[in-house]
Simulated scan of single mutants.
Amino acid sequence: MNIENWIGIAIVAVIILIILSVFLRFVPVGLWITAYFSGVKVKIGTLIGMRLRRVIPHQIIRPLIKATKAGLDLKIDELEAHYLAGGNINTVIDALIAAHRANIELEFTQAAAIDLAGRNVFEAVQVSVNPKVIVTPDIAAVAKDGIEIIAKAKVTVRANIERLVGGAGEDTIIARVGEGIVTTVGSANKHSDVLENPDLISRTVLGKGLDAGTAFEILSIDIADVDVGRNIGAKLQTEQAEADKNIAQAKAEERRSMAIAQEQEMRAETQKMRARVVEAEAEVPLAMAQALRSGNLGVMDYYKMQNINADTDMRSSISDQANGESEE
């Protein structure tokens, strides 16, 4: 053979390899062989159809192989529909296998609905088999005697698969338990009653049916810790007394301000009256002069009036001096 023949054979071989690699990439023959020997009957055309529908075949076939080996009878169309809906095939298959081993009735449609609802269906099955303990934060409540009680509870719950879709979660359980603790402590006459019988809280809270409408079933509520907090009653009384004192001081200050204002007003009025008296006294000499000129007042009358004023001033001076000596 000449060089041209070798070049032609090489080109044909490369083309064949490219076509074969493209075919094997588009048609997962290896996955089909694995499924066939695992007992999963799937056609090559079905795998090609998955490629055309933009479905990754191994994300459907491998979970199906796992389910078949676990004894579950599932259809490829169901798995593919759930995949196209945005579900997690592996989580659903693991949940179905766990439920099948634990003798829990769980259908694929129900598991798929729980998965599409945003809940971890495999974890829910595990919690249904092995109950979960939820620890509440410190919850403060006040008894009728004003003493604060701080309690912490451990809530043992089991997942209720039938209520996983649309049921409330752990936060609702914690909130309801906290409400029950506050109600129970608040109805106690003395805080010592709660300290002596902490199981009173558990019995009261359990009797309220707190798991209604939730995705869990409450098995037990155990009070893990109970502490005595502040004397809220005494604190409120102290704050009330302080507030009353501030109000009284404010009212007293208001009365003092009003008294000062009235005093200043009276002083101003007195000054006005004195000014009027001074003005009137200033007019007396003018009036007397006018009376003397007109003949209505004689000179002797004027001297008598002056003597009377001098006598009055002397008597006033003697009286003031006598009062001062008596005080000494």
Rank of each mutant, 00 (worst) to 15 (best):
I3E: 13
I3R: 13
W6Y: 12
I9Y: 04
A10V: 02
I11H: 02
I11G: 03
V12N: 10
I15Y: 00
I15E: 01
I19E: 06
I19F: 12
S21M: 14
V22I: 02
W32N: 12
I33H: 08
T34I: 09
Y36L: 11
F37W: 10
G39F: 05
K41P: 06
K43I: 00
I48W: 03
M50E: 08
M50A: 00
V55H: 01
Q59C: 04
Q59I: 05
P63M: 00
L64S: 02
I65P: 07
A70E: 08
G71I: 12
D73K: 05
D73M: 03
L74V: 00
K75T: 13
E78K: 02
A81Q: 12
Y83M: 00
L84V: 15
L84A: 05
A85G: 05
A85P: 03
A85N: 04
G86S: 08
I89H: 04
A98L: 13
A99L: 10
H100M: 08
L106F: 00
E107Q: 02
F108T: 07
Q110A: 10
I114N: 01
I114D: 05
R119D: 15
V121Y: 07
E123T: 15
S128F: 11
K132S: 05
V133S: 06
V135M: 12
P137A: 09
D138W: 11
D138Y: 08
A141S: 13
V142W: 02
V142K: 01
D145Q: 06
G146Y: 11
I149A: 09
I150L: 12
K152N: 03
V155H: 08
T156M: 08
T156G: 07
N160C: 06
I161C: 02
L164R: 07
V165M: 08
D171F: 11
T172Q: 04
V177S: 06
E179S: 08
G180V: 01
V182T: 04
S187T: 04
A188R: 10
H191Y: 15
V194C: 09
E196I: 15
P198S: 07
L206W: 02
E217K: 12
S220W: 04
V226C: 04
V228W: 09
R230P: 08
N231Y: 06
I232S: 14
G233T: 14
L236P: 00
T238K: 13
E239P: 01
A241K: 09
A243V: 01
D244S: 03
D244Y: 03
E253Y: 13
R256S: 05
M258D: 15
Q262H: 00
Q264Y: 04
E265C: 09
M266V: 10
A268M: 09
R274S: 03
V277M: 06
V278M: 10
V278W: 06
E279Y: 03
V284H: 03
A289Y: 05
L292T: 02
R293N: 10
G295Y: 05
N296W: 11
L297N: 07
G298A: 03
V299P: 05
Y302S: 09
Y302G: 08
I308F: 01
A310S: 12
D313P: 01
N323F: 06
E325P: 00
S326R: 12
S326A: 14
